[in-house]
């Protein structure tokens, strides 16, 4: 008697998705446009997919596309490890595996008729871009919209053309700053937190969404709180190693939080104590 059973399409199986377009963003960062496995992949801003490269491995990557255009799956990726480097070598027509979307979302509902303050550092703009798309296509849901973005150098700025276009709009404020003002840079130089104190949002009603390296989020959240934004309305995206994406493998724990299942997005009021403990 064969007792082997077909267990059905499991959450653990990557589904093939074909690359339709590759956009080089910076020296180490690129954007992949993919045909979603079922023709479309509905997601909420802030959610991520597990991307699989044949024989190399799998990594969690946030979706950087427009939630109102789920027929194109867009991921912006920084090449830092074996899998992301393999992804960088791919060209249109190549196929990657996709599992997802997983994780919770930036609380765009919370932003209803509030000032929206998006604070991004480096690659952290990618998971926040769906929030910006959402805010622009549901513009009346928000009061003022701010995008405050910091990078290492001017050549690390992502989505430059889009930022320029957003900057030209009258219904949103976009401010950029870099840590290293190299030759030819005529924008702001300094950490991203300096943009917070200069932005004239209404702190008592603002909702802030912060994404970047942990230390950057820590300081940005603190600056926002010092400027009067309630800790419950400052959101950060936490990061730990993610393997399964669905709460089964345990790797992504940060203190008592299981990030892939309950996060990765948390209000600062909850994240603050997680930030405070070393090696949690």
């Amino acid at each position: 008697m064969s007792a082997a059973v077909d267990i059905g399409l499991a959450p653990m199986l990557p589904r093939p998705a074909r690359i339709t377009r590759v956009v080089k963003e910076t020296a180490d960062t690129f954007t992949l446009h993919l045909e979603p496995p079922d023709g479309k992949l509905a997601f909420m801003p802030g959610q991520f997919n597990m991307l699989y490269v044949f024989g190399v491995g799998e990594v969690p990557i946030s979706i950087s596309g427009d939630p109102d255009a789920p027929e194109v799956l867009v991921h912006t990726i920084r090449a830092v490890g074996a899998v992301t480097k393999a992804l960088m070598a791919m060209v249109p027509g190549d196929v990657v595996g996709v599992r997802g979307p997983y994780g919770n979302a930036w609380p765009v509902g919370e932003g209803m008729r509030r000032d929206l303050v998006v604070v991004a550092g480096g690659i952290g703009l990618a998971p926040l871009r769906p929030v910006i798309y959402h805010a622009l296509s549901h513009r009346a849901d928000f009061d003022r919209v701010y995008v405050l973005y910091g990078t290492r150098t001017p050549s690390d700025i992502l989505f430059e053309e889009e930022l320029r276009a957003w900057r030209a709009r009258f219904d949103m404020e976009v401010e950029l700053t870099v840590d290293r003002g190299l030759a030819g840079w005529s924008g702001r130089t300094g950490v991203v937190t300096t943009l917070i104190e200069r932005a004239d949002f209404a702190p008592e009603s603002a909702v802030a969404m912060v994404c970047g390296p942990e230390v950057m989020m820590r300081f940005a959240a603190r600056e926002l709180a010092q400027n009067g934004v309630e800790e419950e309305r400052i959101f950060v995206s936490l990061e730990r190693k993610m393997k399964c994406g669905v709460g089964l493998c345990g790797n992504c724990q940060l203190g008592p939080e299981l990030l892939c299942r309950d996060g990765p997005i948390y209000p600062y009021s909850r994240a603050r104590r997680l930030f405070a403990v070393r090696e949690l």
């Binding site: 700053t177 003002g181 190299l182 030759a183 702001r188 130089t189 300096t194 200069r198």
Partner: peptide, 23 residues
């Protein structure tokens, strides 16, 4: 306004060390 504090650093030309502004 915004003012850049710059250092001329050949051969990299001028570097912006920091920008300062209101306040």
């Amino acid at each position: 306004g915004v003012i850049a504090l710059e250092v001329y650093a050949p051969p990299r030309s001028t570097m912006s060390a920091e920008t300062v502004g209101s306040g």
